[in-house]
Computed example of a mutant assay.
Amino acid sequence: MALELCVLLWASEGNEEALSRYEDTVLALVPKHGGKVVSRVRSRSQGDGPLEVQVIHMPDESTLQAYMQDPERLALTDVHSEAVARTELLTVETIV
């Protein structure tokens, strides 16, 4: 069954650009696993909300897991740990 995901990302303090560079790199791997980045937006507001929100389509759970375990992605674990303070992954459904 196809998955539609909403990813919410908060940057560690002072690491907003590092988060964006990290996401540039790892999101480039999504098509390799049959997925598609549908939308990627960045907050312009100050506050407690996420810095970046993404909508990603993946063919199924196994392709999502393959992406999550991709060696190129895992090689960046230290970058992720430094740049990203918090991540929320939601399974969603487009209404409009």
Rank of each mutant, 00 (worst) to 15 (best):
M1T: 14
M1H: 14
M1R: 13
A2E: 15
L3G: 12
E4G: 09
E4P: 00
E4A: 11
L5F: 12
L5M: 14
C6W: 08
C6V: 15
C6S: 15
V7S: 10
L8S: 03
L9F: 12
W10V: 05
W10I: 02
W10A: 00
A11R: 13
S12W: 01
E13P: 12
E13N: 10
E13T: 11
G14C: 10
G14Y: 11
E16F: 05
E16Y: 05
E16H: 09
E17S: 09
E17C: 03
L19N: 02
S20K: 14
R21P: 02
Y22V: 02
E23D: 10
E23M: 13
E23Y: 13
E23S: 10
D24I: 07
D24M: 12
D24Q: 09
D24F: 04
D24G: 05
D24H: 06
T25A: 11
L27A: 08
L27N: 14
A28H: 09
L29N: 02
V30W: 03
P31F: 03
P31K: 03
K32C: 02
K32F: 03
K32I: 05
H33P: 02
G34P: 07
V38I: 15
V38W: 05
S39H: 11
V41H: 12
R44H: 12
R44D: 12
R44Y: 10
R44L: 14
Q46T: 13
Q46G: 12
G47F: 03
G47C: 01
P50A: 13
P50M: 06
P50R: 09
P50F: 10
L51H: 03
L51T: 00
L51M: 00
V53S: 14
V53A: 15
V53C: 14
V53M: 14
Q54Y: 06
Q54P: 03
V55I: 15
V55F: 11
V55R: 13
H57V: 01
H57C: 01
H57M: 06
M58G: 05
D60M: 10
E61F: 08
S62R: 08
T63I: 07
L64G: 01
Q65V: 08
Q65G: 09
M68E: 06
M68Q: 09
M68N: 06
D70K: 02
P71C: 12
A75F: 08
A75L: 07
A75H: 04
T77W: 02
V79C: 01
V79F: 12
H80L: 05
H80G: 00
H80M: 07
E82F: 07
A83N: 00
V84L: 06
R86V: 00
R86F: 08
R86I: 01
T87P: 06
T87C: 06
E88Y: 05
L89I: 14
L90H: 13
T91G: 10
V92C: 15
E93L: 13
T94H: 09
T94M: 06
I95Y: 05
